[in-house]
Amino acid sequence: MIAFDNVAYSYGGGELLSDISLRLTPGSFHFLTGPSGAGKSTFLKLCYGELLPSAGRISLFDREVRSLSRDDIALTRRRIGMVQQDCQFLDHLPLAANVALPLTVAGKTSTPQDLTDLLGWVGLGQLADAKPPALSGGERQRAALARAIIIGPDVVLADEPTGNLDWEMSLRLLTLLVELNRMGKTVLIATHDLNLIRQAKAQVAARVLRISKRRVQLAGADL
């Protein structure tokens, strides 16, 4: 689905990531860890075509990312649900419309019941008409997750999805992501929360990738 071959990414004259080769296979569950500034967010941005590698080759659904036009990238992103750490919404639209946005831009529709079910699944059923500025951090994260999956993507990427959440809310979000994985979605979560990773490994066969010294390595079982 997503394949890196000897990928490097340079920024501001220095190399942030180098010589990365890996594959995210369908239905896999990965965590991406590493210290702040190690390049986790950059790695995720490379995964959905927001950034292009300075060296090497990235394939998204068997297409080399450099060969994709802007329209191709837009269409590819409909297959990749993204949950950002600082979830951004269209503040003038109610939550339900924000969650349905990927369908709207794709010219598709969802039934009101489907939308209600999805909002209920992430625990936001009562807030369908609320505007995003009125939501708490945890509600925004769950709304972002709902938005990321409403169009039925093959891959879900999450960048520090529990960064602003308390432990209880973090576990709730993790449970949702695990459920998605059980539905066959490929999940990649960037986080530095080792407790979250340990909790996940108890529920799902998750692999842990660690960014260290600009490279991505498969972490050991000590986590």
């Binding site: 927001e50 329209d71 269409l75 992103r77 409909r78 946005l101």
Partner: peptide
């Protein structure tokens, strides 16, 4: 910000 959100969720430039 609106443009960034729209691009992120898969909106094409024409849209």
């Amino acid at each position: 910000q609106v443009v960034r959100v729209l691009r992120q969720v898969g909106a094409r430039d024409a849209y």
